[in-house]
Computed example of a mutant assay.
Amino acid sequence: MMSSQAITDTPPTKGRISTVRKFAAVIFSTTVFSLGLVAPAAAQNVESLLQNALDLLTGNAARLLAVIACVVLGILAMFGAFDFRRMATVVIGIIVVFGSAEIVDLLTA
């Protein structure tokens, strides 16, 4: 026989999953919309569309965001609010994002 508590309890992740799904849907639709507006001539040439997307992800704005992220990580580490394991993960992620072209060149050469 089930207890009354088991009947009335809802899963604790139900609200969070719907929030995450909404956030993911907004990010996906924004990405698709922005990639569609990258360049009008991109509809004729897929390679230029992909190159524009690469420039968007590894351009000057992305580099500035990476620098700001490193500065914030340094400040948080200085006050002991961020551990070095997570900091290393973020820095390795930045290295992979901006070094991806060189990594692919090494693998395909």
Rank of each mutant, 00 (worst) to 15 (best):
T30V: 11
P40A: 05
A25R: 08
A6P: 01
I75L: 13
V67M: 10
F82D: 08
V72T: 14
A66G: 10
P11G: 10
A61C: 00
Q5T: 15
F23V: 11
Q44A: 14
S100E: 02
D83N: 14
R21Y: 02
Q51E: 11
A88P: 00
L37C: 10
A24T: 11
L35G: 05
T89D: 05
M2G: 10
V67Q: 10
V38F: 06
V38A: 14
G74H: 03
M87T: 15
L106G: 10
S100I: 12
A61G: 07
V90T: 05
L54S: 13
L65G: 12
D105W: 02
S34Q: 09
C70H: 04
A66W: 00
V26N: 10
G93S: 09
I68D: 08
F23Q: 14
S100W: 02
M2Y: 12
T30A: 15
V32D: 00
L56T: 15
V67R: 07
P40V: 05
S4R: 06
V71Q: 09
V97T: 15
S3M: 00
P11V: 07
R86Q: 10
V72W: 07
M78G: 14
I75P: 01
L57A: 15
M1R: 05
V46D: 11
G93K: 03
G99F: 03
A101H: 09
L107R: 03
M1V: 12
V26H: 03
A69R: 05
G36T: 07
F23Y: 07
I92S: 11
I94G: 01
I103W: 02
T30Y: 04
D55R: 10
F82L: 14
V71P: 01
A77G: 06
N60V: 07
L64V: 15
L56I: 13
L54T: 14
R21G: 01
G99V: 04
